[in-house]
Amino acid sequence: MSSIAVSQYSNYQSRVAHNRATSEPAWIRWTLIGITLAFLSVFLFIPLAAVFTEALRKGVETYFAALVEPDAVAAIKLTLLAAAIAVPLNLVFGVAAAWAIAKFEFKGKSILITLIDLPFAVSPVIAGLIYVLVFGLQGWFGAWLIENDYKVIFAVPGIVLATIFVTFPFVARELIPLMQAQGKEEEEAGLVLGASGWQILWRITLPNVKWGLLYGVILTNARAMGEFGAVSVVSGHIRGLTNTMPLHVEILYNEYNYAAAFAVASLLAFLALVTVALKSFIEWKIERDASNEEKLSEQ
């Protein structure tokens, strides 16, 4: 990076020349940093701080009372249940899709990749709507479901389905590029040495992509626990039965029970902070594992 200038001028001069040429004066730097931090404060830091201050506004006792109240506990349980079903299912799908797409060549591959991305392009409200059209009273299976006394819409299965839909692409999206980049030489070597398909998957492929996998699972989990729009359409908002945590927040808020609404919201915000922290940790791990790549650093 230090160019010809170094050999021609003294060290000090060259450093000044270098700084002037490819960096900005200090006042511009600090102005830009200031504007950025102001922008992020308004849109990130202050809202985040507001969640916790509003939650604790009426004291610690009210805060914990809002969290252990039966409807809140039921909402927390349902949220955990939906995530506990959606995350493993999408994980298995993600691994299968990445295996097929990254290790094999076939026609229509790019179409398949686009279709996997589809749920990201669909409004959460529409994600809920389509399940109502299939499983609702007037839906395709509506009559059959009533006859057999199953409930999907306005019940837990509908919430789980909507959650699966909105978190569908996350794991596959993380794994596909990663497994494509790693090629298939290691798997082929395993095969030559007599490993079975499952052994190759468990002992070669998955360990190679473990951080990417974890990354995908964390994103899936965060979205699964926080989904609002899609779940709102299929839930029916029955307290204690079909309310997830975000829906419980909405109900409390609409009842002007702000302290309780923000108390439950603070749990979700805490989960988001943990998610972001884990994400950074994994990125750091991947970076450290992958390379001694030099980062573009100034000065």
Binding site: L44, G229, M245, L273
Partner: peptide, 21 residues
């Protein structure tokens, strides 16, 4: 790290927090 927060923060939480401030 916090730049990713809107990906991770449930939209309902963001909604009530922005409304409050």
């Amino acid at each position: 790290a916090l730049v990713d927060l809107p990906f991770a923060l449930p939209t309902a939480v963001a909604g009530i927090a922005l409304t409050a401030i």
